[in-house]
C-alpha cells in the first residue's frame, strides 16, 4: 500500500495544536512509519509551490481560526489539494479563543487595524470577523479541544491516516468514542464524513465528580471558594460547562479542580451551549420568588464569554455568520 500523504497547517491560533501532533511523534518515535508528511510549514518550512507539485494530499490537519486573508487563502488551497480535511482544535473547529474578539463592542480604538495601507508590503488584511474553517471550506472531520487531547488526535491519525494499521504505543479510550467511530478505527475503514473525534454525550458523563441533584442559593466565582474535591462543581456553585460540552477529555479540567469551559464544543444533543447552560443553571435556583431569582441572576457575569468561550463563531446560534459574510474576502477599504 502506498504511503499516505499528510499536511499540517496552523492559521491564526497558537502552536499548541501542532505541538500536540509533534508530541505524538515524539512519543511514538516516529509519526511517519506509514505516512509521509509532505507539507508542514512550521516544522518543514514547506512552500506553497511544493504543495502543488506534490500531487494530492490524503489528509490535511488544519489548526487555527480564519482571521486574515492569508488564512482564508491557505484554507482554500489546502482544501483543493487534500482528499480529507480535518479541523484540528477548537480554533479551526469552532473559532476558538480568537473568536472571543467578536464579542466585544467595536469602537475606533479597538478596531483591528490594517497597518499596511498602501499594500506595499503585502501584509494580509484582517477579515471582518473570526471564522471557523467550515465557514470557508468543506470540512470532513473535526478533532475538538484546545489543544486536542493526544488520545483523540491519535485516534484521528489512526483511522484516517494509518487505517487501523499502526504502531499503537499510545492508547486511546475507544470506549469514549461513539460506536461508529470506534468500530471504523478498529476495523480500518474510513469513519462517516462529518464525524467528530470525541464522545457523544456530555463531559459530566465521564467527570469523576459526584452529582447529588442539589439546589443552592448562591453562585461563586472560581476564585472565591476552594471546592470539595469529590463533588460536582456546579452543585457547589461554580459555573461548570460540563453539561453542555461534548465528552472526550474525560473531565480533564474538573479533575484538576477547574471548571469546564467547553473547549470540545457542544455535546451532540445540545442546540446552543448558552441556552443549555441557562436552563441547567437556572433549574438549580432554590427559589420561586421573582425578585429573589432576579437578584441571584445579577451575581453572574459575562455569560456569553463563558458559555461560548471557544465556540462563538460556530455554535452560538445568534452569532453564526450567514453564507454571504463567509464568502466575502475583506475589501480594500
Amino acid at each position: 500500500m502506498p504511503k499516505k500523504k499528510l499536511a499540517v497547517y496552523t492559521a491564526t491560533g497558537c502552536a499548541a495544536c501542532e505541538n500536540t501532533i509533534l508530541d505524538i511523534h515524539y512519543d511514538l518515535g516516529s509519526l511517519t512509519r506509514s505516512a509521509d508528511i509532505v507539507f508542514w510549514p512550521y516544522v518543514l518550512g514547506s512552500q506553497w509551490d511544493g504543495l502543488n507539485e506534490q500531487g494530492p494530499v490524503d489528509v490535511c490537519f488544519f489548526a487555527g481560526a480564519i482571521r486574515t486573508e492569508a488564512d482564508r487563502i491557505a484554507a482554500v488551497r489546502l482544501r483543493s489539494n487534500s482528499k480529507l480535511m480535518v479541523a484540528c482544535g477548537a480554533c479551526a473547529a469552532f473559532g476558538g479563543l480568537p473568536s472571543l474578539t467578536d464579542l466585544h463592542p467595536e469602537t475606533p480604538e479597538n478596531r483591528p487595524e490594517h497597518l499596511d495601507e498602501g499594500n506595499e508590503f503585502l501584509l494580509p488584511k484582517l477579515e471582518s470577523r473570526v471564522f471557523a474553517l467550515e465557514h470557508i471550506v468543506d470540512v470532513d472531520y473535526f478533532v475538538p479541544g484546545c489543544p486536542p487531547t493526544r488520545d483523540f488526535l491519535w485516534a484521528a491519525i489512526q483511522s484516517l491516516v494509518y487505517m487501523g494499521d499502526s504502531p499503537t504505543r499510545i492508547s486511546f479510550t475507544a470506549s469514549r468514542l461513539p460506536m461508529a467511530l470506534a468500530e471504523s478505527i478498529t476495523s480500518g475503514i474510513v469513519p462517516p464524513r462529518g464525524s467528530v473525534f470525541a464522545g457523544e454525550k456530555a463531559v459530566c458523563a465521564s467527570c469523576s465528580r459526584i452529582k447529588e441533584e442539589k439546589k443552592f442559593r448562591g453562585f461563586y466565582r472560581p476564585y472565591e471558594i476552594d471546592p470539595d474535591s469529590g463533588r460536582c462543581l456546579l452543585e457547589q456553585g461554580i459555573l461548570c460547562q460540563g453539561l453542555a460540552t461534548r465528552e472526550g477529555c474525560g473531565g480533564l479540567c474538573t479533575a484538576v479542580g477547574a471548571a469546564c469551559r467547553g473547549c470540545f464544543g457542544k455535546a451532540e444533543a445540545v442546540f446552543d451551549p448558552g441556552a443549555k447552560m441557562v436552563s441547567a443553571v437556572s433549574s438549580t435556583f432554590d427559589s420561586t420568588e421573582a425578585s429573589e431569582i432576579e437578584g441571584l441572576t445579577k451575581t453572574f457575569v459575562d455569560l456569553a464569554g463563558t458559555f461560548y468561550r471557544y465556540t462563538l463563531a460556530t455554535q452560538c446560534a445568534l452569532r453564526t455568520p450567514n453564507a454571504e459574510e463567509a464568502k466575502h474576502a475583506p475589501d480594500n477599504s
Binding site: 491564526t12 466585544h104 476564585y223
Partner: peptide
C-alpha cells in the same frame, strides 16, 4: 513580517479576571 495578530485586549476585556490565566 509577522502575518497575523490576536487582538488580546479585545479577547480579554469584559471577562472575569480570574479567567485570564486560561485564556
Amino acid at each position: 513580517q509577522v502575518m497575523t495578530k490576536l487582538n488580546l485586549s479585545r479577547m480579554c476585556i469584559g471577562r472575569p479576571v480570574e479567567e485570564l490565566p486560561r485564556i
